[in-house]
Structure formats: C-alpha cells, structure tokens
Nucleic acid binder design. Structure first.
Length: 427
RNA sequence: GGAGAAAUACCCAAGUGGUUGAAGGGGUCGGUCUUGAAAACCGAUAGUGGGCCUCCGGUCCAGCCAGGGUUCGAAUCCCUGUUUCUCCGCCA
C-alpha cells in the first residue's frame, strides 16, 4: 500500500512513478475524498467529545442530587444528529481504501520505465552448451527417456498442466530441494513449513488481493473461504502481520519449502511444454523482514544467494533487472535469475528476487521500534531460492551427453545416494 | 461434528454498567545501600491507529480478541464471528 500522505503531499511524483509501471494514476479523487474525510472526521469527533463530556458529568451531578434528564436528552440528540455523518464517513473511508489498495507499489527511481521489453541483463554466468556432434533432446524427451517424469499417468490421475516425478526424477527433485534448504540453513535462514491453506487477510497483506484473487484456487467447504498458496511468500510475509518487532530481532530471515498452486489461466503456450508452467510446482522461498536502512543490503544478499544456487549447479544463467512495469504489483524492484533452456533458446526465470519496501508492511501493519523508540514499518523482501520447475528442465537439457545420459551436478550427489549420471532406461 | 470454559497492557492477573488511560504482582530502566553483586528500599516506565493546534509540547476521537447492538454512559450487558483450552464423538 502506498502511503496516503505521500500521495497527498507529492501527487505529481507518485503519478510519474506509477507511469513508469504503465499505470495511469489520477490523484484527484483521492485528494478530494481525503479532504472530505478530514472535514467529516472533525465534525463527528467534536460531537462525540461533547457527548463524552456530558456523560462524564452525570455521576457527580447525581451525587449532588441534581437533575440529569436534560443531559440524557441532550446527549441522545447529539448522537442522533451524528448518525448520518458517521455513516457517510464510513463510506468515504471504505471508498478511499478501495482506491489506494489497488495501486501497485512505486518502482525504485533507478528502474527503466515501461514493460518487459525494457528489462536488461546485468550479469551473465557460464556458456550456452554447444552440443557438438549430436542433436540435443528437449527436456520432455529427456525426462521420458530417462524415466524421470510420467506425463501420461499424470493426465490420467489429474489432468493437464501437471506431471508426476517418478523414481530418479523424484529423487532429483528432492535432491534439488535439499540442496537449496541446506544452503539456506547454512546461511542462517530459519526454516518454516507453513500451512498451505491461507485466509484472505494473508493474500491482502502480500499485495496479491484484491487484484489477483481470481488467480488462486479457493477451497470449497472452508468458511471463511481459504485459498491454496500460490507461493510460500504469501505465508512467510504474513508471519509478523500486526506485530511490532524490536530492532534487535531484525533482520529476520526465513525460508520455506512448499508446492505452489496457480491457476495460470490462459497462460499456457505450446512452447511451454513439460514442466515449464503448471498448476503445481515446488519452490523454496526466502523472505526477509528488515529496516528501511537494511533493505538494499538485504536485496543484494538475496540476489547473491539465488545466483550462488544456480552457479553451484554449474548452469548457464543470467540476471535480468526488470523494468518498472514488469516488476510484480507489490514490488519496488525485481531481479530475475534466468536459466538457459537450450530447447527453447531462451533464458527462463528460476528465481525472482524483489524488494517490497514498506508496501506489504503497510498493508499488514508489520512494524518495528527503531533506536529512538519510534514505530516504523518494516521492509519486506522475497526471493525464490529456487523454483525447481525451470531448474529441472534446464539441468537435464544443459547437462545432457551425446549418449542421452545426464550428468548430475556434484552438489546434488550426496542427496542422491552418490548417483553421478542418469542413464536412459531400456524400453 | 457436539458440550463447556476462556480471550484485559511486555508477562501474570484484578475488575460485571459511571471521573478505568484500567488495582496488584512480575519484568525492564534509573537510584539508595554495598568493595562489587544479591537482597531490601525508593523512583520511573502502559501499548496502538487517527484528527487538530501556537508541534521537542498540547488536545480530541477510537481503543480491554474482532464486528455489530443496548444505554445518557460498557472492559463490564446482548448478538455474531475468530482463536485457545478441556471433555465427548468421528477419522487419516
């Protein structure tokens, strides 16, 4: 949530900043409503103050044997006269909230304006494999020939947009997750296994609602309705909702493994076969709560962590600095870590590291006491570390050998019982 | 799923309609005492959201789980919801 004060004090600044996100913002309705709100509020509160004062005088007057019926009458009248204004005030506040809560976060000043087309890579690692002397397979073929994934039976037991990890495929997936998890533990992050069913408030604080409430799965039979998390960020960033942390417990560093469930309605494209995009995928997610002062350093740290994970696997990847309009709705800045997928000839996102600054904290009242004892909003950051559904295809494709086998990266072998190479299974 | 109990400030806890911004205790901070510490004693400290002003201060509104209601007046009464605990049932 953008600070209303900022909108009122620097409407032009906010307008320009949102323009970079391709968001056409008109501050006038907010300015008008705010003005109206303050006026009404003062009026309503003045009446209440008088009511309170009169009521408070009742006991002493009674004690002296005075007559209080006039006061009763007067206070009742005051209350009645205030009813309408109070109702109006409520309406205005709801309307105002509605206007502000849908606004995306302001982008950082250094971001390029516009959408995807203005993203630009700022770091590159490794080389795109050449595959000399043989025709490389795509990951769907590899996963089938190596017996890692069963798409057919997945369609049978579930439907499209999903898959089954089988045998060594399941173990490879689990190895990846273990590798991520252990790295985070070593880096001092606290492991969390959150519930996968969350309430509306959690989606609201994360900034996913109300805008994206149609994009998640809502669970029949829950009351109030719960949704299945689209990312562990939604859970992690709500851990300290409505809390005031003390300065010495910041930064708080968490990570969680969860499957992520998304509708991805209409987003499936033919080139995104296999496990590039599905209704369910595995992800380890990092979240930090920190101070305004610590927020930039935390961002760097998390980008570096995501990079180190891909690098540890020896995969070719790049870091893409997203233009303002391509950053997530709630985020002030986002860097994507993108891994090379040979068959698609593109770099695909495996991690998205973002700084929400105080946007989420404001929505969820996540605060801390600074060294002067002042209550301030935390900064929240999140980043995948990592999502497996792109790493897995990239890994098998990039590390495939002429004979159709795939080399297992060194770092994963301890989690796979020492297996160093995946060989095609005989048909 | 059924029955019951509970939710008060950093923590424990009193408070069942009237100056309650909420007794008491603990904690924390400062001090006295002490060579130092402990104990004892003295003092300080009560969150949060919002409004206005002559803005290192003042003042008003909200606020005792949340949302409604009754009342001149509610932490206290009523309704709804949430969460926690206990018991029963059912179940992986």
């Amino acid at each position: 949530m953008i600070d209303v004060k900022l909108i009122l004090e620097k409407p032009e600044y906010v307008k320009e900043a949102l323009k970079k996100k391709n968001w056409d913002f008109d501050p006038t309705p907010i300015e008008k409503l705010s003005e109206e709100r303050v006026k009404l509020l003062q009026q309503v509160e003045a009446v209440k103050a008088e009511q309170n004062k009169l009521s408070a005088s009742v006991p002493s007057i009674k004690k002296e044997g005075g007559d209080v019926t006039a006061i009763f009458k007067r206070v009742k009248e005051l209350g009645a006269s205030n009813k309408e204004a109070e109702a109006k005030l409520k309406d205005i506040e709801a309307e105002l909230k509605g206007l502000i809560e849908v606004l995306p976060n302001l982008p950082d000043d250094d971001l390029a304006a516009g959408g995807k087309e203005n993203n630009h890579p700022i770091y590159h690692y490794g080389e795109e494999p050449k595959f000399e002397g043989f025709t490389p397979k795509n990951h769907v073929e590899l996963c089938e020939s190596l017996g890692l994934i069963d798409y057919k039976r997945a369609a049978k037991i579930s439907g499209t947009g999903t898959w089954i990890y089988t045998n060594l495929g399941a173990r490879l997936e689990w190895a990846l997750l273990n590798y991520f998890i252990n790295t985070h533990i070593n880096d001092g992050y606290e492991m969390i296994l959150p519930p996968h069913l969350l309430n509306y408030e959690s989606g609201y604080t994360a900034g996913q609602f109300p805008k994206f409430k149609e994009d998640v799965f809502w669970l029949e039979g829950t009351e109030p309705k719960k949704f299945i998390l689209p990312t562990a960020e939604t859970a992690l960033v709500n851990l300290h909702r409505n809390e005031i942390l003390s300065l010495d417990e910041l930064p708080r560093k968490y990570f969680a493994y969860t499957p992520c469930y998304r509708k991805e309605a209409g987003s499936y494209r033919t080139e995104e076969r296999g496990m590039i995009r599905g209704y369910q995928f595995d992800k380890v997610e990092m979240v930090q709560y920190t101070t305004e002062e610590g927020s930039d350093a935390a961002f760097e740290e998390m980008v570096n962590k995501a990079k180190a994970l891909v690098e540890g696997l020896g995969l070719c990847y790049q870091v893409d600095k997203l233009a303002a309009g391509d950053c997530s709705h709630s985020m002030a800045r986002t860097y994507d870590i993108e891994v090379w997928i040979p068959s698609m000839k593109i770099y695909k996102e495996v991690s998205s590291v973002s700084n929400a600054r105080d946007y989420q904290a404001r929505r969820g009242m996540i605060r801390y006491k600074d060294k002067d004892g002042k209550t301030r909003y935390c900064h929240t950051l999140n980043g995948s570390g990592l999502a497996t559904s792109r790493i897995f295809p990239a890994l098998v494709e990039q590390l495939q050998q002429p004979d159709g086998s795939v080399i297992i990266p060194e770092v994963l072998r301890p989690y796979m019982g020492g297996i160093s190479v995946l060989k095609p299974i005989k048909k």
